[in-house]
């Protein structure tokens, strides 16, 4: 059990070291304002990463997340211009966003489970289709907040205890996902399937049901992420999220989720998201030369994953030594 938390611990160590270094270089880093900015800027990434954690735990992957989120954004954007300025409309939109996400995610889940196509292929295919349709329909047209209802703008500016509602939303989703994974039958089944598919099937877990569930949940979160994205940028940009899927996957895997499935925690993923967010934020604060920024990001990621793995190996070696000793 100890070694499981070790993974999260090693990322936490990296984050702490990075934070100390950054606050020495630029004290602004450690201000509450900056930390809130980092959190707020990574809410969309974080929400999507929660869903991706479940998908990856079952041994799947979803590269269509950014496309699905964009599709929902575009639909909601079109509706936002039309709806009356009333709080009820806002809830209606939230429901529509979630439903739309669930449908799109469900399609992925259906193809993965019933047709038995590998998840990466299905989602590559749906990504390319959704992106194509979105671009064709919108022609890349950008929507700004002039025509959005006032109540929506008010919603996105709400602060509770000085913290933006978007950050609260993220924590809410994180707690929901954590609860789902730890305290529901479905959560246990997800972990069981990722851990050992054969034995999970033998115990009578319905594999198809679980897969459809995780993809639909992923879609559901994409719907919520779409609302968060529109509130965050106060605009709809059909090209704005392109390439985000790789960051989402990176955050999840950095957070210690095994890409082959079977293991992963909500805490780990939150740490992974934080690490990516801090790196991005730190680049300008640390005044790193613009042309070297990407080199630094790449090196930090490589160092982080290698460090994590070396720690793990060392722990394993220690374990086996103890076994021999005893």
């Amino acid at each position: 059990m100890k070694s499981i938390m070790k993974k999260e611990a090693s990322i936490a160590v990296i984050i702490i070291i990075l934070s100390i270094v950054l606050s020495f270089i630029n004290p602004v880093f450690l201000t509450i304002d900056n930390i809130l900015d980092i959190l707020k800027g990574n809410v969309v990434l974080g929400i999507l990463a929660m869903g991706m954690t479940l998908v990856i735990i079952t041994g799947g992957i979803d590269v269509s997340v950014a496309a699905v989120t964009t599709a929902v954004c575009v639909v909601i954007g079109k509706l936002l211009v039309m709806v009356p300025d009333h709080i009820g409309a806002l809830f209606l939109l939230l429901v529509i966003a979630c439903l739309l996400g669930i449908i799109l995610g469900g399609i992925n889940g259906f193809l993965v489970s019933k047709i038995e196509i590998p998840a990466i292929v299905v989602t590559l295919g749906t990504m390319s289709m959704i992106n194509g349709i979105v671009l064709y329909v919108t022609n890349g047209q950008y929507l700004n907040s002039t025509d959005f209802p006032k109540v929506f703008l008010k919603f996105s500016n709400i602060k509770i205890l000085g913290v933006s509602i978007l950050i609260w939303l993220f924590f809410l989703i994180a707690i929901l996902t954590w609860f789902l994974l730890k305290h529901t039958v479905m959560g246990r089944e997800i972990l069981a399937i990722g851990g050992n598919k054969e034995s999970a099937l033998r115990v009578g877990i319905n594999f198809n049901k679980v897969q459809i569930f995780v993809f639909a949940y992923m879609g559901f979160l994409a719907g919520i992420a779409a609302i968060a994205q529109i509130s965050y940028t106060k605009a709809v940009d059909p090209n704005g999220l392109s390439g985000l899927e790789l960051s989402v996957i990176a955050a999840v895997v950095l957070g210690g989720t095994n890409i082959m499935g079977g293991r992963g925690t909500v805490i780990g993923t939150i740490l992974g998201v934080l690490l990516l967010g801090i790196i991005q934020n730190g680049l300008i604060l640390a005044r790193i030369d613009i042309f070297w920024q990407k080199v630094v990001v790449g090196l930090i990621i490589l160092l982080a994953v290698s460090y994590d793995h070396i720690q793990y190996k060392r722990a394993q070696a220690q374990l086996s030594r103890i076994e021999i000793d005893s």
């Binding site: 900015d37 940028t233 604060l285």
Partner: peptide, 24 residues
Amino acid sequence: VTDKIATDEKQQVAYQKTLDLIKS
């Protein structure tokens, strides 16, 4: 204050980088 900052042709990235700039 610094060399030109890339924003990947995205509004959201420009937004985040500007926040960082204001702070730095």
